[in-house]
Design a protein around this nucleic acid. Structure first.
Lengths: 203, 203
DNA sequence: CCGAGTGATGTCAGCTGATGACATCAGCCT
DNA sequence: AGGCTGATGTCATCAGCTGACATCACTCGG
């Protein structure tokens, strides 16, 4: 790294240690900012790394690929919702359990809609990122299905319930992001579930 | 291309024309065979091209990327199911229309289970390919939702019905591929729909 | 207080996927 | 015959990604 590449944090906030801590967070912030400014494809990994004050090699030590920098918190979401599913009362119906899991997921990202909007704008603008998002949601769905099976629900019903839950979440999230008023994400999920029941009800 | 790279078809079946026709099909076959033999990541594009008797540059003229060679027929599936949706009687309920669309899709791939199994084995073995498959299914779901909206169904219900249909299809396809007996894909879809109705029914 | 060990990072070399620019040439059309 | 077209080959180049190894501030036991 040449001296011309020294960034602001290096000049002003170098308290101790050989490197500034929090490289992962700096990379996440830098990536989101650049993806917003210039688009995902037009942003090179070395540029993200430069803005974060590290090398491209370090980027790939934190994130498996250029997309993952926007998604690595999704694992946490899957864990929390699985835990909520585990904690649901035994008396709850399959869909009630799924609803509880989605509520827990909503708690995690429902608090900062502006951040969610930025992320969503970047992701919807690029096919590779849309693919990765689908993949993460599918992973969450698979985790939920596993949890349901552990509750003794048979395989087909578990898979179907989890996939349906994912569909409900997708619809609710979209509505929440698009909403002009201050809609609560959990309310959107509940309403989405109600629509599903209407849809599949006879008549 | 050196003479050492000349493949069998070039030696024996060169009837006329500068190049053997059907390069796209040859590339599809070569790719599936190699992905099965050695795995997706371990197969290089140049190897697929060699087996098909073309160069890697030609591979990328037929397919946008290394994954797409397994998926470019999915567009046809989306078209056929959209057409079936269009053709459904006006009296049909939302879910009945979706079911008709899925039936049309099933017609396209339900006839060759062995091919479907090979493709499925390759795809499930690799994360990038699973991502792409989700992406294709999402594309089909979006097309179905569009068709439903054109029928006057409101946005949320259309999206929800299409996503639910995709979930039903996913479950049915998995069961069909795993089945030991000669299950019909369309029957599997119908049964999957029945399970959904049971699931969302009160009680 | 010193020397070995640790861990995060840098440096370097290299492979593979992917793309643009241009050349080639069989077959077709006039 | 001669030019046009379209599919393909050739070449150069870049960006994503990875393995191997070096570096060096910090830590900890002696």
């Amino acid at each position: 790294m040449s001296s011309a590449d020294i960034t602001v944090w290096q000049l002003y906030t170098r308290p101790m240690g050989r490197w500034e801590p929090g490289a992962g967070d700096r990379l996440r912030e830098a990536a989101l900012a650049l993806y917003l400014e210039r688009g995902f494809e037009q942003t090179m990994v070395v540029e993200i790394a430069d803005r974060a004050g590290v090398t491209a090699r370090t980027f790939f030590r934190y994130f498996a690929d250029k997309r993952e920098v926007l998604f690595d918190k999704a694992a946490e979401m899957a864990e929390k919702s699985s835990a909520a599913l585990e904690a649901a009362p035994a008396s709850a119906s399959t869909l009630e359990v799924v609803a509880a899991a989605l509520d827990a997921a909503a708690d995690l990202i429902g608090s900062d809609r502006e951040l969610a909007r930025q992320r969503h704008a970047v992701i919807t603008a690029n096919a590779e990122l849309r693919e990765r998002e689908l993949s993460k949601l599918a992973h969450m769905s698979a985790a939920l299905a596993d949890g349901l099976r552990r509750r003794g629900i048979d395989d087909v019903e578990a898979t179907l319930a989890a996939e349906t839950g994912a569909a409900v979440y997708r619809v609710a999230f979209q509505r929440w992001v698009d909403a002009a008023d201050d809609l609560d994400l959990r309310d959107a999920i509940r309403q989405s579930f109600d629509r599903l029941r209407t849809l599949t009800a006879p008549g």
